[in-house]
């Protein structure tokens, strides 16, 4: 009995320590976003109202400078690019995954299994290996530094994940359900849209959210393929962090804004994960 409670205590100590490790930086950026430059220069301060006087100045200054720093433009770009490429990837991936589950394809010696692993293997290639060629291709198409160019790039990276997860989702849908619709005269595409896709809405949403978080946070492609017009939030953050006159406080409030959308997406995603939406996809 004594031993059990000791292991419990150790477990709690480890879990609480990790929670501190996780929350401390989050706490720090939140509190810092309410610190005036003076409060920062006095050294590390921890508790609002106790060792520093919180102020909304950073947020107000950020709003005032929104024009000059192109803050709205970067956030709008990120929102448009991340959501359009996620929805496009989730849809294209669902079509392909559905086909791979329901029909058998042959291209010479290549069958469904090979095509699926082909999608997966493409994830092994480091993005830097294709980003330079991508830049040259977009240049030919006059799509460098455009939202469309960025969307094209992100769909490439989202597709394999979408195919992978949606394939497991479709595999769990019994064929009989569709057959009933088919007998009633629905075409393959009709029964896909009206019967099967609604049944896997949970996985579809999870795929969309995972892609969204990836695209919202992505850095390398945005760094190479944009230089002003189509810049995303990570580009804004990286630029501001090195720009002159940028202090901790304002940078913190910018960082706080930047993580809100992906955290909201993450909280929604966690609900799907808890429901075991992805359980089949992550087996060894």
């Amino acid at each position: 009995m004594h031993k059990v409670s000791l292991s419990k205590i150790i477990s709690y100590i480890i879990l609480i320590s990790w929670a501190v490790v996780v929350y401390f930086p989050v706490y720090w950026v939140l509190t810092s976003s309410f610190k005036l430059p003076v409060a920062v220069m006095q050294g590390a301060t921890y508790f609002p109202f106790i060792d520093f006087q919180p102020s909304l100045d950073n947020y107000l200054l950020l709003i005032k400078q929104a024009e000059q720093l192109n803050i709205v433009k970067h956030f709008l770009n990120s929102a448009i690019i991340a959501s359009s490429s996620s929805i496009a990837a989730a849809l294209l991936g669902s079509f392909a995954a559905y086909g791979l589950v329901r029909f058998s394809y042959r291209i010479g010696p290549i069958n469904n299994e090979n095509i699926t692993s082909g999608f997966l293997v493409s994830r092994m290639v480091p993005p830097v290996t294709i980003v330079l060629a991508f830049l040259l291709m977009l240049k030919q198409l006059n799509l460098v530094d455009t939202k469309l160019g960025m969307i094209l790039a992100y769909v490439t990276f989202n597709l394999p994940l979408a195919v992978w997860i949606m394939r497991d989702a479709f595999a769990d849908v019994p064929y009989e359900i569709e057959e009933a619709a088919r007998i009633d005269g629905a075409s393959k595409w009709q029964s896909f849209w009206l019967v099967t896709l609604p049944l896997v809405a949970g996985s579809f949403s999870a795929v969309f959210l995972m892609c969204f978080i990836f695209n919202w946070n992505e850095y390398l492609f945005a760094l190479v393929l944009t230089f002003g017009d189509a810049g995303t939030v990570p580009i804004l953050l990286a630029q501001s962090s090195t720009s002159r006159g940028m202090n901790w406080g304002r940078m913190s409030s910018l960082a706080v804004w930047s993580i809100i959308p992906s955290i909201i997406a993450g909280i929604m995603l966690e609900r799907f994960l808890r429901k075991g939406v992805l359980a089949g996809s992550i087996k060894g």
Binding site: L15, V22, P25, W28, N217, L237, A238, W248, G266, E270
Partner: peptide, 23 residues
């Protein structure tokens, strides 16, 4: 703990790097 442990995964590495590395 379970929910809080997922938090870092959602945040942009650029933001995290600044907050942890620089601050």
């Amino acid at each position: 703990f379970r929910v809080s442990f997922l938090l870092p995964m959602m945040m942009a590495p650029v933001a995290v790097s600044y907050v942890i590395g620089k601050m």
